[in-house]
């Protein structure tokens, strides 16, 4: 077989695999533009006249707006708090190198290694005792706490890469430590901040279990809404599910498409930086 033909075949096979993986997402996206009967049609209808009916139907639900706003507010607030705290912590770990830093870093990360199901009951009891169930500060702080270890790891890797000579130069120029952190070091680790931000936003945006258990109606996010609030008197409301899933997935798809390289940074704790 000619090398050119072989390469084409291999490429074709890879495309086939990629499309197969994308099919469920495609089905979801298409479903958002179908009528209720078209969604459940067997065999699935790939060719149809798109309609806004599902999306307008979803927008007319009061609950949709509350869930969407909760998802955005809780995700962004938790991640912003986590990034600020993590940056300060990572700077301290990187620059002051206290005895036992490595062990502390391990302990910090271990919280992310524990399966959610293992801690959900103690968390529920704790939150009940504190009266934080179904409260914004409660759920935001929880997600921030969960996002901090990962962010510290990522950011420490980046801050280690910024020579302490910059800190010293700025301090002898008259800058305070806080000024050095936020005006000299922070601009140099922006890719790390972006990586930590993206990675943690994806985690919080997708999280279901804890919002379901220690959250409540007031702070329910889209994942909770998808799983629990879709039954009507006629059964499962597939049109609402399809539209909500589309609106829920689209922002992440866009972010992942444009910031894929930062995901690699996140998945390797900042040790592989690639083109970032």
């Amino acid at each position: 077989m000619k090398p050119k033909v072989k390469a084409r075949l291999q490429q074709g096979f890879l495309w086939l695999v990629a499309v197969a993986f994308f099919l469920p997402v495609l089905w979801l996206f298409l479903a958002a533009f179908k009528t209720a009967s078209q969604i459940l049609a067997i065999p699935p209808r790939w060719i149809f006249r798109p309609t806004w009916q599902g999306l307008t139907y979803m927008a007319s639900h009061q609950a949709f707006w509350s869930h969407a706003v909760n998802s955005v507010v809780i995700s962004l607030s938790a991640v912003v708090i986590a990034i600020v705290v993590s940056f300060v912590a990572a700077y301290s770990f990187s620059r002051f190198r206290l005895r036992g830093t490595n062990f502390m870093m391990f302990v910090l990360l271990s919280i992310r290694m524990v399966p959610g199901a293992a801690v959900v009951v103690p968390m529920y009891l704790m939150y009940t005792a504190l009266g934080w169930i179904n409260s914004y500060p409660g759920i935001i702080l929880f997600y921030a706490m969960f996002s901090i270890p990962f962010s510290v790891w990522i950011l420490k890797g980046f801050i280690d890469g910024v020579s302490p000579r910059f800190d010293e130069a700025a301090q002898s120029d008259g800058a305070s430590r806080l000024h050095v952190m936020f005006r000299i070091v922070l601009p140099q680790v922006l890719p790390g901040i972006v990586a930590a931000f993206i990675f943690n936003t994806i985690f919080v945006w997708n999280e279901f279990l804890f919002d379901f258990i220690i959250g409540g109606n007031q702070v329910a996010t889209i994942p909770v809404a998808l799983a629990s609030g879709l039954y009507t008197s006629q059964g499962i409301d597939w049109q609402y599910i399809a539209s909500l899933t589309f609106v829920y997935t689209l922002p992440l798809m866009v972010v992942i498409y444009f910031f894929q390289k930062y995901l690699l940074v996140g998945m390797t704790f900042g040790t592989v930086r690639g083109e970032v």
Binding site: S163, R165, F166, E168, A169, A170, S172, I184, P187, Q188
Partner: peptide, 8 residues
């Protein structure tokens, strides 16, 4: 300082 440490 001996090194440049210019803020990039």
């Amino acid at each position: 300082p001996q090194n440049f440490a210019l803020y990039p």
